[in-house]
Write a protein that binds this DNA or RNA. Structure first.
Lengths: 220, 220
DNA sequence: CCCGATACTGAATATAATGCCACTGCTGAA
DNA sequence: TTCAGCAGTGGCATTATATTCAGTATCGGG
């Protein structure tokens, strides 16, 4: 049982046409200027279109090419997907992952509570996403309820590391300890019991390694 | 001795009520999460209001107090006015402060160990610098040796907040408790003793308020 | 020559969202 | 007591917006 994860990342981005780049640039500018994304009508007006549908079609194209997300039905529901390579500065936008539904992959959009720009040099190895921690089972490791655990996506972990693991249907943060055929997931709080996993019988998927903690709430 | 620092903040902003602060925080969160500001209905739903007008009234109040701009007629036309003006781009570069020499100011260049780019939306109120924590006196608050404490520069603090204080020659991180003429600086670790400061005799300077924690080292 | 992609015009429609009015209840200051 | 500010409920007219449908035109393959 190789403690392996599936892995999969999004693919290449189709090139934009000249016009589509213009639209994208315009959306950036208008969003920056006003604090919120433009409507179809505003795009059309700025571009000189006499039909809002021209803007609509462009948005569809941009969404299909993966540079935009459009929230259906929501007014101004445009979000520019800032792919890491695109930016001038070398900062990443990390997703904040909340409650993870059983069976579905970690980074599914439905789990994303928000995004934060993080200096990649802050964590080593590189953090791939932030997981909102629930419960106090890692209290004595200084990881409290509501904290954001910076997670490095990796299917393998060494004994002693803090891992994000999937045991059965549950996603949990614990310290990993290997013991031959079995693996222990140790809480850092005497009020909680260790989880014993026999790899010959139970499934264990390592989702990643904890590489940092960010606490920003009122839990402070 | 009025617990005051030189610090000083910019233009007078009327204080927000508890509820209004909640609304503001919510708007920040929703905007961060979705990429665009919420509608009145979304605010009402998130807050549990049964009337969208409750949200409308709060927005009016927040606008009147100068923390918001509302674009009349535009859907989702909410812009949070960033006080302090400091924010030029979308992210700031915060200094990491190490050992602070007695008597010299916090942000003196000699104390700067490095700088990290941080999303200003990560902490509220705004973090002004990061302080490398020494010692385990705040262990039970989840602040460990080597952690970076995000500090909001402020000469005033409320009872119960975690503060960076200068007592005599020492800079220390503790939880503040006011007791009439005296102030207690409470550790969050039974192995350490509280510090009692009599304001009529001893000097106490609040350097700032702890607004967040970042842990990135191998302490994890 | 037809097809699909790009790039639009123009109009129609359902609904999302703002903005306003009337009203309740509380609190603290004048 | 009265009054202003705060915190809501509920309803409603008017816009604002998204989204779809029906076209026109150009371009580069296959």
């Amino acid at each position: 049982m190789p403690l392996l994860n599936e892995g999969t990342v999004s693919g290449a981005m189709e090139p934009l046409t000249e016009r589509q780049s213009e639209i994208l640039r315009l959306i950036r500018e208008l969003t920056e200027a006003s604090g919120f994304p433009p409507t179809r009508a505003e795009i059309a007006r700025s571009m000189g279109f006499r039909s809002v549908n021209a803007a609509e079609q462009h948005l569809r194209a941009l969404e299909k090419k993966g540079v935009l997300d459009i929230s259906s039905g929501a007014s101004r529901g445009i979000r520019i997907r800032d792919r890491s390579g695109a930016r001038l500065g070398r900062l990443m936008e990390l997703a904040v992952i909340g409650r993870v539904a059983a069976g579905s992959p970690m980074l599914a959009e439905e789990h994303v509570q928000g995004r934060f720009q993080i200096d990649p040099n802050l964590f080593a190895p590189r953090a791939d996403y932030l997981l909102r921690v629930r419960g106090m089972s890692m209290r004595d490791a200084g990881i409290l309820e509501g904290d954001l655990l910076a997670v490095h996506r990796s299917g393998e972990a060494r004994s002693g590391q803090i891992v994000v693991a999937r045991v059965g249907d549950e996603v949990t943060v614990k310290r990993l300890r290997r013991r031959g055929h079995s693996v222990q997931l140790l809480p850092e709080n005497p009020d909680f019991a260790p989880i014993e996993v026999d790899l010959r019988r139970d499934s264990l998927v390592i989702e990643g390694i904890g590489v940092g903690v960010i606490r920003n709430g009122k839990s402070l």
